[in-house]
């Protein structure tokens, strides 16, 4: 095995560059090194001006998403040896404005997330003395996969609909809305309906399915969106047939 590998890293210096340019670095090719370790090596030993986001290094914080050889990946969970002999092209996440080098502006996602109320909504909170809201294993299973989302935004980066229309609420936000809609303790489905069933919500999705393919946590946002389409369509048609029964 060669002892070095080339990383072609997209550099974008605001004010200087009009578009990203690739810069090559040689980093040690070690079996246990992820792409993120390669970038840290560059930052520590070769070029301190390189900017990128990271935190936990163990696939749970969701901050190190990048485009590795064209695919959206968590750079801490993507290993150098899988791309040997290289070179490996590392670019910022697609579909987000690039602030500098590998750092993107995630403001759009952060603004959208609270609009779908991804938290437990209750009409009336039962008093603390009554204890916790109980749930059966079957009820847990209904939403558990969606609760694995770490907000890494790889799904937005993979989604061509979001690339074309930034108003699209997008895969993770809708999947997180479903995570609460399908939770037996939640009563907020009606409050989420307006945003989710707007034209910028579920109806923009054409089930390309790439969001689910990109998800590093095994969430299926594409499936969540189609399931919600069925729910919303059934509700809308019920509403048409029985306009007075809505609460």
């Amino acid at each position: 095995m060669a002892d070095e590998i080339t990383l072609e890293v997209a550099r974008f210096r605001p004010g200087e560059d009009t578009e990203p340019v690739l810069q090559s670095y040689q980093v040690p090719l070690r079996e246990q090194w992820a792409v993120l370790d390669g970038l840290s090596y560059i930052k520590d030993h070769l070029d301190g001006t390189l900017s990128f986001r990271w935190s936990c290094r163990m696939g749970i914080c969701g901050s190190c998403g990048m485009t590795v050889n064209g695919d959206p990946q968590l750079s801490c969970a993507t290993f150098l040896t899988d791309y040997a002999p290289g070179p490996i092209r590392i670019e910022p996440l697609h579909n987000f404005p690039v602030i500098r080098d590998l750092v993107v502006d995630i403001g759009d996602f952060m603004d959208k997330l609270p609009t779908v109320k991804p938290w437990l909504v209750r009409d009336v909170h039962s008093p603390l003395e009554e204890g916790e809201y109980l749930q059966t294993p079957e009820e847990l299973e209904d939403y558990q996969q969606y609760s694995m989302c770490i907000n890494c935004m790889l799904c937005y980066s993979a989604c061509p609909v979001y690339a074309l229309d930034q108003d699209f609420v997008g895969p993770a936000a809708i999947a997180l809305a479903q995570r609460y809609n399908l939770d037996s303790r939640d009563e907020g489905a009606d409050e989420r309906l307006a945003v989710l069933s707007s034209p910028e919500g579920i109806w923009s999705c054409t089930f390309v399915g790439e969001c689910s393919a990109a998800c590093p946590k095994g969430v299926d946002p594409a499936g969540a969106i189609q399931r919600y389409k069925l729910t919303a369509a059934t509700q809308a048609i019920k509403g048409l047939l029985m306009p007075r029964s809505r609460r």
Partner: peptide, 18 residues
């Protein structure tokens, strides 16, 4: 100043899955 990657008109030729 930020960089926004333009979407190619025939973007679906860029990936097999697309």
């Amino acid at each position: 100043t930020v960089y926004e990657r333009p979407v190619h008109l025939l973007w679906w030729l860029e990936r097999r899955s697309y």
